[in-house]
């Protein structure tokens, strides 16, 4: 017999208004690294360790640390500020 699938189609994520990824940085030396801490426990530890390693290896500069609530999308205002001030953002951790 025939039955319907229960999942349906996927819409384009309305949040993904800029679906194209930014080009990768050719070199990290001298670049400015921002940290977007989602405030989950230990996120700051991991992100700062990563940033410090990059600084040691490449001479990159950590210029900004910012925070958001882990349960909500990052505010556009915060992302806008980061976009102006840094070349690269480290984020995406949870507990």
């Amino acid at each position: 017999m025939l039955i319907y699938r229960p999942d349906g189609a996927v819409a384009q994520d309305p949040d993904r208004s800029a679906p194209e990824l930014a080009p990768a940085l050719p070199v990290l030396a001298g670049s400015r690294i921002g940290i977007l801490d989602n405030r989950k426990p230990n996120a700051d530890v991991l992100l700062h360790r990563l940033a410090n390693r990059l600084v040691e290896r490449t001479g990159a500069i950590v210029v900004r640390t910012d925070t958001k609530n882990a349960a909500l999308p990052c505010e556009d205002q915060v992302l806008g500020l980061l976009a102006e001030q840094v070349d690269l953002i480290l984020t995406g951790t949870a507990d």
């Binding site: 017999m1 025939l2 039955i3 319907y4 699938r5 999942d7 189609a9 996927v10 819409a11 384009q12």
Partner: peptide
């Protein structure tokens, strides 16, 4: 915009028993 994720359409064959 819709992304069609179905290779076999909305209906699928399923053995009655």
């Amino acid at each position: 915009m819709t992304v069609d994720t179905h290779s076999d359409g909305p209906l699928i064959e399923f053995p009655a028993n």
